[in-house]
Each structure stands twice: as C-alpha cells, then as structure tokens.
Design a protein around this nucleic acid. Structure first.
Lengths: 334, 334
DNA sequence: CTGTTAGCGCGTTCAT
DNA sequence: ATGAACGCGCTAACAG
C-alpha cells in the first residue's frame, strides 16, 4: 500500500501538501494540486484511515448498539443508518447486546475503546442515570426509541402512547367492548407506553380494563401464540385482541386459523409496528405504523449534524404513529 | 482517557513494560505485573485500539459486506457473525452494497482502506475473476453463499442444487405432475442452482419442464404475488407451485387466500429458506432449510482460525439443505 | 501557498 | 526482566 510519503515524492512536494489536497482545508495552487492528484492516481493511493484517526483523534466511525441484529425491526433500522452514514463517508461498527444490562454496558465500552466518534444506542436494560452520565462524557450519544427528559435533545423516539391509543380507539370505534390485550414485556418502555395508550382509549370509551384478558408476551411470534392459547383457556368472551406488536399479532392469528376460526369475522385483531410480512398474509393486518427506519435515519443524521457538522443533515426527534387500516379488524358479530 | 504512559508513571515502570503485560508475550515478573495491573485498574485504562492497530498493523476488525441488512435472511447471519467475532474480541464493520457491482467493489475498497484484517463477503454482482484476484491480495477473504472452484477453501456455501431437488421431489412424490416454478432472479447463483435442482427432480420423475409455468421473481414477497397474478392469467392448469424462497411463497399464498382458495387442498406450495415467519401463518409452510445463520458463524470461525490463529475455531465449508415438511403441500385433488 | 516538525498511542527491536 | 528509542501513516501547528 502506497503511503502519503510515496505520493509526496512522486509529486515532488512535501508531505503536508499531500495531506492538504486530501482534506482540502487550506488553499493549494491548482498546479500542485493536479500533480498530487495524478501521483495519487498512479500509485493507486488509499489513505490509511487508521493513521488518520490516530493523528486527528477522529475515527470517522460511529458505533451502533442494538439488542439484536435480526428480526423485522432492527434490519431496516440498520440499513438506514448504514446508508446515511456511508453517504457521509463514515463507517458503522456494530455490536449487539441482548437486552442484558451488563452486555449493554460492555457494548458501550467496546465501542468507545474503538474510538467511535459517536454512539447510536437502542438500549433498554440500562437505567436513565447511566445514560445521563454517558451523555456527560466526551463521546456524543444518540438514543433511539427512548425518551429521557434531561437529555431529550439526543433522543429519537416514537410516541408509543399515542400509537397504543390509536390502535385501541380503532377497535372501540367499531363497536367492540370486550377486548383482550397482548402486551410486550413491561420492563420495556415502549411496551409500557403502548399499554398506557390502550388504557386511555378504553377510558375515553368508558370500557373497563379487564386484567384477566391481559397477557404479557415477548413481542415475538410465539408470544402471540402463547397469549391466545392462554386466553382461550380462561372463560371470558372477547371479540377483539389488541397486540403490542405485529409479530405477536401474527402468532396469535395463526393459532386462531389453526382452530378454523374466521378472522376477522369471529375475532378482530390490531397489531403494532407495520412490519412488512403481515401485509402479505391473509387477513392483511391492521396495524400502527412504527417508522423505525426513519428513526434510524434520523439518528444517523443527528450524528452527521452534531458530530461531523454536516449542514445538509436536518433532524427530527419525535415521530408520530399512524393507524394503518387493512383487513384484520371489523365490527363484532352479534 | 488514560494512556499507556499514565499507567507506566503510576506503576513506576516503563512504557514498554506496560505494553508487555497487556500482550503478555514476553515474561514479566509477577511483582511488576501486579503493579501495572492495579495501575491500569485505578485509571480505568482502556487501550486505544486505533493506536494499537497503527503500531501492529492489525486492526482486530473484520469487514462484512452484504447486499442488504434487512430481511429475514441477513439479520440472523449478521447476528451470528457478530457474536462469534466479538467472543474473540474482534469488531465488525459492516457495509451494504445493493447487489450492484460498482457498490460491491466500492464496499470492498471501503473496508480494506479501513484496515480490516479480513473480509466476509456475501456478494453476487461481481464476477469470479474479481474475487479470485482479491483473494491473491493481502487481505484474506471468505465468501458466503458462493462457490468458486479456484478458491474453494474460503467459500462457505449451501448446496442449493440439492435443495431445489429436494423441494421439487417432495412435490412430485405426492403425485403432482403439473408444477409451476417461481424462481429467484437468475443472475444470482443460488437462484440458478435451485432451478437446476428443480429440473433434475423433474427429469427423474419424467415430468417435462413447462416454460409457460415459470416465473422469475425477485425473492421478495411481492415477487410471489406477481408470480401468482401472472400464472392465473395464462390458461394452464397446475396443482402445485415450487417457490425459490419462503418470502415469495408467502406472497403467492396470500394472493390465493385472497381469492378464497383453500391451501393446500386446491394448490400445494413449497418454499425455500425456512425463515421464521411462515411457521406462524396458516398453512404452515413446507420448505427447505437454509442454515444461513450457521454459515455466518462458519465464516466468522474461518476468520478466527485462519487470520487470528484461534485453535478453537473449527470450520465447515459445505452445508446440506434439508426438507422441512409442514402443512402447505399435499397430494393433488382429482 | 508550501515545507518542517512535532506528536497521536502503542508495539517492538535493541541494549542493559 | 526491564528501559530507551524508533517507527506505524497521517494531521496540525508553526514558519517562511
């Protein structure tokens, strides 16, 4: 690999000049600039980014920490982050914790020691205080899917309470009064907020929240299956089930279809997230849009703007969920 | 951030000694070793990996290039790669091309200039020659999902021809003789191989391949929908459709269910990949297992073994697909 | 506008 | 077993 030195010799200029044309901060005469450029070209020169980082104490890489890399949720988010950052010529270093506190902290340390210029975090196990402290450090952080008042400027999040409200309101508006609710794990903030929204809608329609028709799942497909299997054993009628994720809704619907039930005629469903797959099954899932890819992009833009001073990056912090009506919910059959 | 120098001062030893206890190559007396260790501890010292890389010309990071980050396919693969590599204390730098040749080459350059110790590539647009040349370079590469004879030792792949054969054989064994085939894009090798396997099974059962019942999709859900919409317009009977991916199978089945058809009674389906989702819909999809996460792990192990000399990493290159029988295919109704 | 020089933090010879 | 000194490839003052 050719170095900056080789280039300088071939071009007949000094080391510094070569560096200048690369970073075009300072003025360089057009003539020497061309000499350098052609020398770089001849040698097939590629700057050693490691050395650049060490000298400039800037790694041009941003760390991304998420709980998992698979699933319909993080994939699109990662895609947008990578695309946005690479367009700005930055790299993405990823790490996965598994919603385990120690691993989340580990991941942060790991990325920081790698000299990341900033961290994009989608963490749920660590507490607010830890993040507030982290925010005071030298490495800028941006939080996806989490709102902390004290550091709200670096939070990119969805109004999950509103989303929960919209989903349940849609069901109630169609005349249902006996609703089951399949929640996500309640240690997660988004699960909590969605439930809050659910309850608000209930109150608005003067429908009582029925604890026995509540099930805490894990956001995954089998969480939904488990929920239905449970709900069918207890002896309470219900005409609709509100699910806190599309994956759970899908798992739940599958159980019903297995039993030969007609959906939505016998039972209505709403999901949450608007992941691609349930658009392609029957019945097409009515759900709430979770613009996770947009949030990924915004987190990347936040970094581009605040860390790399990219003026083109405009960021939006708050996202508003929208109801997406498809075929899985209808009025209750009497 | 404390540096190696700070540690050396606090411990009352030289710079070199600190470096020695970190890399414990050379012998250090137990006494000084402890002094250094405690000094590091007190300062909360974390080595600057950038500096380590520059000095040792080893970045401890491996580049991963895939066509996309989302979808049920790459997520699990990335998860395994990240897990395996991080266990070996290596980082993952990711880049996404979009199956576009120029972007694939760009991605490779990008990762190499970042000083990656090795590259894990899941590329499909560049030709064999390019990869063979790359293989001659200084940066080791390992290919996922691609077999190139000349560099077979660094290929991790699935026998897609066999998978295609198994899927179709399963259908034929149940008595179907009129099969439609929904293929992936034929510029992709795996799509080609699956089709080859399909044809081999056909020949074995003395069934002619019917070009009019062939559709080239894009591996995605709507590719399957498009296929069915097309197949229903042409006036040819068929009792089963073999799909080259689960996503296409799902899209195809959805179209049928919309029309009120009974699956598999009126039409049988086989998929390919064994992604999670179609296990949770009705009917549960019969498919061929594609151990993509295993392949990701093996690629990581390959790097651990050949690049970082990890003796614990044992690697397997070839993977054998298996038929997974569920509910979407049955004998044809007469 | 351009060249000289001193680090960035660490690994690695050489001596001792 | 340990320390001094040099170099990895590049950026960033500081001169000129």
């Amino acid at each position: 690999m050719a170095t900056i030195y080789d280039v300088s010799v071939l071009a007949g200029v000094s080391l510094a000049t070569v560096s200048r044309v690369m970073n075009n901060n300072t003025k360089v005469s057009e003539k020497t600039r061309q000499k350098v450029l052609s020398a770089m070209d001849q040698l097939g020169y590629r700057p050693n980014t490691i050395a650049q980082s060490l000298a400039s104490s800037r790694s041009n890489s941003v760390g991304v920490l998420v709980s998992q890399l698979d699933g319909p949720y993080y994939g699109p988010m990662m895609t947008e982050i990578e695309t946005a950052l690479r367009a700005g010529n930055k790299h993405v270093i990823i790490a996965a914790d598994h919603s385990v506190e120690s691993q989340e902290k580990d991941g942060v340390e790991f990325l920081m020691s790698r000299g990341c210029d900033a961290l994009i975090l989608d963490v749920e196990a660590v507490d607010d205080e830890y993040l507030i402290n982290l925010h005071k450090g030298n490495t800028p952080i941006v939080l996806i899917n989490r709102y902390i008042e004290e550091i709200s400027d670096c939070c990119v999040y969805l109004d999950n309470e509103l989303g929960g409200y919209l989903a349940t309101k849609h069901i109630l508006s169609q005349g249902h009064t006996d609703l089951a609710y399949v929640s996500g794990p309640l240690y997660k903030l988004d699960a909590q907020d969605r439930l809050l929204g659910h309850k608000r809608a209930l109150k608005e329609f003067n429908v009582d929240f029925d604890k026995t028709l509540f099930y805490e799942g894990n956001f995954r497909e089998f969480g939904g299956s488990d929920a239905m299997n449970h709900l069918f054993t207890i002896d309470k009628p219900f005409t609709a089930v509100v699910c806190a994720s599309d994956q759970m809704a899908s798992g739940a619907i599958a159980v019903c279809l297995e039993k030969g039930m007609k959906i939505p005629e016998e039972l209505s469903f709403v999901g949450y997230d608007n992941i691609p797959f349930p658009q392609y099954i029957s019945p097409k899932l009515t759900t709430v849009n979770n613009p996770i890819h947009e949030m990924g992009k915004m987190a990347a833009f936040w970094v581009l703007k605040h860390v790399y001073n990219d003026p083109k990056a405009i960021v939006e912090n708050t996202f508003i969920p929208q109801l997406i009506v498809r075929d899985s919910a209808t009025s209750p059959h009497k």
